[in-house]
Amino acid sequence: MGLILDSASYAYGAGRPFEVPALVGVTLEVQRGSLTLVLGSTGSGKSTLLKVAAGLLQAQRGSVAIDGRPLTLDTARGSVGLVFQDPEAQLFADTLLDDVAFGPKNLGLTPEEAQTSARDALSEVGLDPVAYGARSPFSLSGGEARRAAIAGVLSMAPSYLLADEPTAGLDATGRAAVKRLLLAQRERAGVVVVSHAAEEFLGEADYLMILDAGEVGWAGPAAAAIQSPEIFSAHGLRAPEVLEVQRIAADAGHRFSRYTLDPDEAARMLVGGGV
């Protein structure tokens, strides 16, 4: 069971003179009930990884399987949901309800069933279907549009939910709402969040994978990554600021029994010179 990439590779323009390898031998196992955070700098292969995991791109080497079957567009449909980076690019219908009902309708549900799924999904993302259902998707704020795009994916009740930079460009309120929403999905789905900001999901993630030039730079439990803050800079990333201060302190000779993301605890440790 699970969504499993086994040494998957993908190159754009494969076999042509200007072949660009984007993903090189990446192994990733996503189980329901888990949250995996994928970090990497621009061009590290994060978005390609999501497209391969969603079946939109086919790995040229290695394999991708979903719940024991090879991943194809067919087996991915309805089982893997992908939230792209730009929600505006995903919204298209006249009303929000039609927009969100589009996916379930395509899965073969009757229009009534599709509308019910859409209403449930809108409620789930905190957009009241009565107040919002008839509105144009293009009248929404940035944070609402992002949640609406996620509702469009949730309406198909995917077993695996993949989100590309789900909080980029959102303010504090919007980020908090999207974050809560994705964390809640972990209860029933395997969630993969791709981000360029370590700050956002590291504390809540079960697993962390750092991509570096298309390859796995580091992978393991997120809790272990927090205890090794040097892995971020080793792969061209910046550790969350609170962790980075402790790393600088450690370089300056301070000794901590453990690193923490919590600012309160960090402040006490820094002032006390350790715990």
């Binding site: 609170v242 960090a266 002032v271």
Partner: peptide, 18 residues
């Protein structure tokens, strides 16, 4: 609708600790 970033919260806590 603003949020103090984690680095700012850490700085506040350190100030509170003198």
């Amino acid at each position: 609708g603003l949020e103090m970033p984690p680095g700012g919260v850490l700085a506040e806590r350190l100030r509170a600790l003198g």
